[in-house]
Amino acid sequence: MTVSVVQFGGSNCDRDAVRALDHLGVDAERVWHEDGLPDDADGIVLPGGFSYGDYLRAGAMAARAPVMEAVREAADEGVPVIGICNGAQIGSESGLTPGAFTTNASARFQCEPVHLRVERADTPWTAAYDEGDVIEVPIAHGEGRFEISEDAHADLVADDRVLFRYCDADGNVTDAANPNGSTDNVAGVLGERETVAVLMPHPERATLPDLGRSTDGAGILRAFA
């Protein structure tokens, strides 16, 4: 398994993702978007950062970069793809996953630990957890509020494609535990395939034991192991 961490101008969590994957014994390499996706990429990470300076909308420019066509094709073929933070914004902007991530309700950039409730444990991203588990992973974003039309939200819930919701330490999904005003406390969703996921929190910042407060994010990246 070689995981391609796709680097755009302004990506800044690409090295973190590679280090976290290395730590889990997963072969990972950074791939500059203009060089295209390697043929042997059997996993893809869209990392966090501020691609193209968040011009227009966070993720809007990178989502339309030519490499994303290859990412969509790979995703359609079942290659696991995860978008983290700016990568989640890129994923939703490119249509890999439903909804949109936009300005936090606070109108501020927020960098803080949050709790997530695992809503599905039968996906590659959550096989390390049980449904209902509460994990602690940090967020760092200004545009992480999940927005989706009422109809599309109803479909999302009916199809059981919400992967994580913001919750309190006991797993209660409450307004107080919703850091950014996301619809239905949604922190991460699945694409049409369970092998495609995006989330605003940073699992790669909660993987290495000497970094931060938790290693709860490692289970998500173990999808590639």
């Binding site: 227009l56 909308r57 809007a60 339309r64 939703s92 902007e93 439903p98 909804g99 949109a100 936009t102 927005e147 989706i148 039309s149 599309a152």
Partner: peptide, 9 residues
């Protein structure tokens, strides 16, 4: 349609 607006929002 293709770039300037995001139809979701």
């Amino acid at each position: 349609e293709r770039l300037l607006a995001n139809p979701t929002i």
